[in-house]
């Protein structure tokens, strides 16, 4: 069985310290770069800082197949794509690092076969109808950005979702603006533009009940999907 560890949703700070399985460490902090890497962390970049790469927009894909096409092009044009043999190790190590660093953040991590999925809880990320990233979330995005600069052989797809209030077109547009906001933030965290893809599902893929305020808050979310920049195994 392939082991898929999963952080429990929503700010389970104390719980996360406790559930750390048999080999878990006592450290519970997740932004302790100095401890983890033996380096000084990069100076924090605020969400309100002036956009660095606003002029060049990020790649927007409409659906998963467009995303795959983009990924394949990226593999072909990449100077040093990830070798097929290393994909498993690379994704395992990256996943474990994210797991450790994001353990108290409330971000839900899932290890798929060839991808890592991160669901960022909606409510703390955006206010209803807004594409402005909540300041508390920026520190978490900084952590993610830091890790992604080390693991630079992954394509980061930012997927936006909204709740069901409002029209479909408007929701789609809002979700895309939200994804874009996060993508641009990550770009400012030194994630190369070509590694970033933007996708919107609008309100089409709810994960909670849209009839309650709480459910709607959960549906206003961003998903990050990490895929290795490596050729698919030859058929």
């Amino acid at each position: 069985m392939y082991l898929v560890a999963q952080n429990r949703r929503l700010l389970g700070a104390i719980k996360a310290c406790v559930i750390g399985a048999t080999l878990s460490l006592s450290a519970c902090s997740y932004i302790d770069f100095q401890r983890f890497y033996g380096e000084k962390p990069e100076p924090e970049t605020s969400a309100n800082a002036k956009p660095v790469a606003a002029q060049a927009s990020l790649k927007v894909v409409a659906n998963p197949s467009e995303l795959d096409e983009y990924l394949q092009r990226l593999v072909q044009t990449s100077a040093a794509p990830l070798s097929q043999d290393n994909v498993g190790y690379y994704m395992d190590v990256q996943y474990a690092t994210l797991q450790h660093q994001l353990r108290d953040s409330g971000i839900e991590l899932t290890r798929g076969n060839r991808e890592i999925q991160m669901i960022m809880p909606g409510a703390p990320t955006f206010e209803a109808g807004s594409d402005r990233i909540n300041p508390e979330v920026t520190s978490v995005l900084s952590v993610i950005g830091k890790i992604l600069t080390e693991y630079d052989k992954t394509l980061v797809t930012v997927v936006g979702h909204t709740d069901a209030s409002g029209g479909e077109a408007a929701n789609h547009a809002l979700a895309q603006r939200r994804a874009l906001a996060v993508g641009e933030y990550l770009n400012r965290q030194r994630i190369a533009k070509k590694r970033l893809a933007i996708m919107s599902y609008g309100s089409a893929k709810p994960i909670a009940n849209n009839d309650t305020a709480e459910g709607r808050a959960q549906n206003r979310r961003i998903e990050l999907i990490l895929k290795p920049i490596a050729a698919l195994a030859a058929k």
């Binding site: 392939y2 082991l3 560890a5 952080n7 996360a16 559930i19 750390g20 399985a21 048999t22 080999l23 878990s24 460490l25 043999d85 290393n86 994909v87 498993g88 190790y89 690379y90 395992d92 996943y95 474990a96 690092t97 797991q99 450790h100 660093q101 353990r103 290890r111």
Partner: peptide
Amino acid sequence: TPPKASRIYDSG
């Protein structure tokens, strides 16, 4: 760089 970890713990 084994392709498949035997265990990934929550601790990382």
